[in-house]
Every structure is written in structure tokens, then in C-alpha cells.
Design a binder for these strands. Sequence first.
DNA 1: CATCAATATTGACATACATCGATGAAGAAT
DNA 2: ATTCTTCATCGATGTATGTCAATATTGATG
Lengths: 118, 118
Amino acid sequence: MAQSVVLEGALLEGAIGKCCGAPVRAPLTRPEAEELASLLKAVADPARLQLLSIIRSAADCSACVCDLVPAVGLSQPTVSHHLKVLTKAGVLTREQRGTQAWFRLVPERLDQLGQIFA
Amino acid sequence: MAQSVVLEGALLEGAIGKCCGAPVRAPLTRPEAEELASLLKAVADPARLQLLSIIRSAADCSACVCDLVPAVGLSQPTVSHHLKVLTKAGVLTREQRGTQAWFRLVPERLDQLGQIFA
DNA sequence: CATCAATATTGACATACATCGATGAAGAAT
DNA sequence: ATTCTTCATCGATGTATGTCAATATTGATG
């Protein structure tokens, strides 16, 4: 699970934020752009945004799959798929509790998303 | 060009930001999530992120297609396609100057992107 | 061990999308 | 008017993706 290498650096401080008045930054290289894009892609889906917002508004920012499935109105395999995508992107973490799986937000990772366009 | 209706409201003030400590917000509805996703999708592509970053680092936050094509190393039709996507999403505006087309960043729209995860 | 409940994985399918070459359209210049 | 330059559109193609039904897996329970 490689996670972000590029995102650790100065990139985070506004890779594509508003221009004039802000300090000039070098354009993104292809690899940098691909890494940012893969993070954004993980989040650029209606179902996944809903899942994130539901988990966010839950206690402790964590929720069980059994609650998420009826909340988004998609099939259980589909929800499982989306949760996997979000977890692989580092936006969620997974914890097994007995027979059920709980997913929790990773605030630092969401901060990174926000700062791409800061 | 409908642009955002939902994005105008309270949604913008951190739709999916970090949880605990922040005020509780209602989960996104499907239509809301779809609107946010369509904006994010427009930006969640390596070529388009590169284009945005190049334009951002240019004078006046605007650039000509003739400069963008060699800068990203893709074919002219492909670049034209990406610029259209970004323009349709409201992230860029297009201006015709003689035979060439200039594209400029829309800072307010980028701010909206940043605030989704604020 | 056998069974049940909760998730994950697999396979299939339809749709969306990134990319390019070829062509079209609009303006500038001779 | 013709030609040239710049950009957009079209058509085609391969790949990625969202979705579900069916099945496998894992943990709890009797």
C-alpha cells in the first residue's frame, strides 16, 4: 500500500490554488499529476461522497457496513467495493469488530485533498 | 450551462471535512453528491490537473492552447477535449483572441473545490 | 461440527472516458 | 479569393469503471 510519496512535499501547499497574488509555483509533472489524480478519482464519485459524508456525520467518524448499505441504497457488494476504493486511497481505515467491519475517516488525508486547491 | 445550484449553499463550508471537533453536518443527498462528484470528476484527471497547474503558473493565470499542447505532450485534439471539460465545469473560461484561444482560471470555482473537504 | 450472519470476492455487463487521426470551421495574411 | 494557422469536432478504439447476482470467506453461536 504505497500511499502518497509526492503528496508529502511542498505540493500540498496549494498545487492548483488561485493564482494572481499567490506565490508562483512550478507546474505539476506528469507523475505528480497522476498521483494527485488518483487521490481525486477515489473521491470523485457520488456513492463514495455519500459514504464519506455519512461516516463524517456519525459518532467518532466511523460507521459499520451494515449501516452504510441501507443508507446509500446500493447493493452490499457495491458498497463494499466503494469502501475498498476509499480505503486503498487512504481516506478510510478498516477495523474488524466480530463479524462486522467498521470504517473510519482519516482526517489528515482529507486535509490533503482540501489543500490541493488551497 | 447550468453550473452549480447546490454548491451555492451551506454545502460549501466543508461538506466532507474532518469530523470530530467540527460541527455536525447532515449527510449529502444523492443529488448533492452527484453535483459535487461531477465537479471533482472534471478535475480528477492527470492531464487536466497538469493543464490547470500550467495555467496557474502563467502570467494572469491564462494561457493559449498553442502553448498548452506542447507543455503537456498530448495531441491537440486531446488537449482541446480536456479544456472543454474544464470549461464546462466552470473551472476555466475561454476567450478568443484572433485565431487563438486563451483559457483563464476561475479562482472562485477552485475555492469551492478546496472547501469541499475543508 | 453445523449453521447463521456479515463482508468480501468473482464474473458479467453496460456505460463512460481518454486518446488519437482525420476532418471541419474560423480568422489572418498574402 | 486562396492559403495558412489555430483550434474544435467527429469517428473509432481500447481501457476503466459502476453495478449487480452469485458465490466464497470469515467470525460467532448453538
